[in-house]
Amino acid sequence: MYAQMVDTGQSRLAGLAELSPEERAFQSRIDADVKIEPRDDMPEAYRRTLIRQIQQHAHSEVVGMLPEGNWITRAPSLQRKATLMAKVQDEAGHGLYLYCAAETLGVSRDRMIEDLHAGKVRYSSIFNYPTLTWADIGTIGWLVDGAAIMNQIPLCRCSFGPYARAMIRVCKEESFHQRQGFDILMTLCRGTAAQKAMAQDALDRWWWPSLMMFGPPDAESVHSAQSARWKIKLLSNDELRQRFVDQTVPQADYLGLTMPDPELRWNDARGHYDFGEIDWQEFHEVLKGHGPCNHDRMATRIKAWEDGAWVREAALAHAAKRAARQREAA
């Protein structure tokens, strides 16, 4: 998901008996669905895990502006251009809300950005794939935002108050994103043969990376159990992935597009779609920095940050000058 494979600092889930009295008291508050607020006592591991998870989520929003931003200047109609600009702008807003939520835990936004640029913190693997045609913009809205919403709606109930509140705001704004994506694809699929082919090609390229967004299979997820106990991860990777497949396949049928998975079929006994094996080697390589766009995405972010340094610095200098003048006048 937007925060994939968040390290909880634990190699296994501790038994309840192993918890200290403070940890047990904390856990009983979580179990009673009491929201944890920034100034409350919390285990250090909970705090560190949240900082990691929320900032991965924030970085994903901000880096995620780039693949779609790539098409703002080439959007094929003025209406599409306006919608796409508004959508990418929303993502900046989502990144901002999330950074603020993490900041309540005592880490500065600049520090988080420096950690991203130093390669110490990840962002979602999905944004390391290129947007090659206009259909990719529709497909990202449909699949990537669809997957994100699926993950974010449960997070509105997560145990950390500021994160839950940020998610509520994000989810309110997000529903337009998925629809605008699907609307682009509907138009392409009802359009010329070349447009339809463009849509199919985009689905062929984005389907598998979208499934990877949910993270590795539950069996391999050492950190998930701890995060689930803390209620900062409410549904498992495989559960969310299955829900996503079940929801998306009929939508592809509606569009008249074919999923690039010969093993995909409805399983009556399970009441779910079965689907083929995900190429986890590709997933891990992309996370390690070997995706098609890892280098470009980071280079763009770092350049923007460095190019903006003098602007941020000057605004602060001016504020200091003005405050000094006011003090003198008083």
Partner: peptide, 8 residues
């Protein structure tokens, strides 16, 4: 930190 972070 670069020390140019705007206040919250």
């Amino acid at each position: 930190s670069t020390g140019t972070e705007w206040p919250l």
